[in-house]
Design a protein around this nucleic acid. Structure first.
Lengths: 216, 216
DNA sequence: ACCCAGGACGAACGTTCGTGCGATTATAGG
DNA sequence: CCTATAATCGCACGAACGTTCGTCCTGGGT
């Protein structure tokens, strides 16, 4: 057994975790394929073989890194936004949280999943499958937030969640691109404006008492 | 001299060109760093050293590949659209041309420049600089097309070209992502709809004679 | 017809990649 | 404190990497 019965993490697990934190940072900079075991071991001050023993293969390391990146993403982006009340507030919170996630450099090389998506969109294998799964879950979460806003009557009932989720995600990736590669300091501002305008345009405001009275 | 005086390409130039065509295809699938000289030589049925001599270093090969990819992009995407009259028609033509460029698989691994952008957004060097330059030129061309449409009075005068170019480019990247990685068969349809709605909303139609008369 | 610049080659360099295999050290549980 | 076992290490391997070198072959210019 590598895990203790109750809550007390053993040395190996702690090491594994710290390896993965570094691995995720490095992969966001150099790519999941550019991530190298020797380099990673050096940065952590341990031997290649000692590090390697935790995973058994590079592919397993890559898969574990994707999972660790997913946990960080959920902790830093999704969970805080889910604290907002469902509907329009939560949808907007997710968008703001994503922009802030790039601004705060949660991953030093920009969005881990954007990088992984474009790196593996051209080759088959287990790593690609894991990236696809992660992105499907993310887009799914976005779509659910949109459906909720529609069900709550916060946005127009004709909104297609697949369409809107596609557009929002595109703007996120575009923001990451302009911010990280082009070093456009207005990138996040442009993205925020685009998102706000898109969402405001479909927003339904609960009728105020005054307006309701005037309509009679 | 490696180039003949007038128009007749020598053997070396022809070989170099065919190397680059393959290199660009391979790089769109495996990335510019994943592009390997041995693998490339194998696919072309020539020796590593013979191929290598054409470039002198891997970095030079990468830079040449970026340039070759740029030429293909201009030939396949930009030039056809520039045949349309300036203003709204040309702007729309560029957008349609981009979507069609993904559908036609001009690069087998999806948009070469989207892949390169996300691959090199985290590391310094000459290759990154070349990618940045290429993307700056592309975004610049997009912005110029928008400014023209504004100057021609085809779209609302309050349109910010930087804002709109950012949004359109984001949708292009998003389309590439959904199409290539997620294999969403409706990806290009979603992107097209988003683009059309965004552009239609700012479009100014020349007043018909009937409407002009009614206004008097 | 001759000549030679330059294109292509095979072999080998040193390095780094991912991966195995004992040996050695650290540590958790009785 | 002792000991079983988990964690880490040193070392080595074959393959592939980018790169260099010396040599052959050949097509174009005179």
């Amino acid at each position: 057994m590598t895990t203790a019965r109750a809550g007390k993490p053993m040395k190996g697990d702690r090491t594994r975790q710290s390896i993965l934190e570094r691995a995720v940072d490095l992969a966001s900079l150099e790519g999941l394929e550019g991530l190298t075991i020797g380099r990673l071991a050096d940065e952590l001050g341990m031997s290649k073989s000692g590090l390697f023993a935790h995973f058994g293969s590079k592919e397993e390391l890559q898969l574990a890194a994707i999972e660790a990146a997913g946990e960080r993403f959920i902790r830093e982006v999704l969970r805080p936004a889910l604290a907002q009340p469902r509907g329009y507030p939560r949808l907007m919170a997710i968008c703001r949280s994503w922009i802030s996630y790039v601004r705060r450099s949660v991953f030093p090389g920009g969005c881990f999943f954007a990088a992984a998506s474009f790196e593996f969109d051209g080759r088959p294998g287990a790593v690609r499958d894991a990236v696809v799964k992660a992105m499907d879950e993310w887009i799914g979460a976005l779509e659910r937030a949109i459906v909720m806003a529609r069900d709550e009557g916060h946005i127009d009932s004709s909104v297609d969640e697949k369409q809107l989720a596609f557009e929002l995600n595109s703007l996120f990736f575009g923001a990451n691109f302009a911010h990280q590669l082009r070093e456009d300091r207005r990138a996040l501002e442009l993205a925020t404006k685009a998102i706000e305008r898109r969402l405001e345009a479909i927003r339904l405001r609960p009728p105020t008492r005054r307006a309701a009275a005037a309509r009679r």
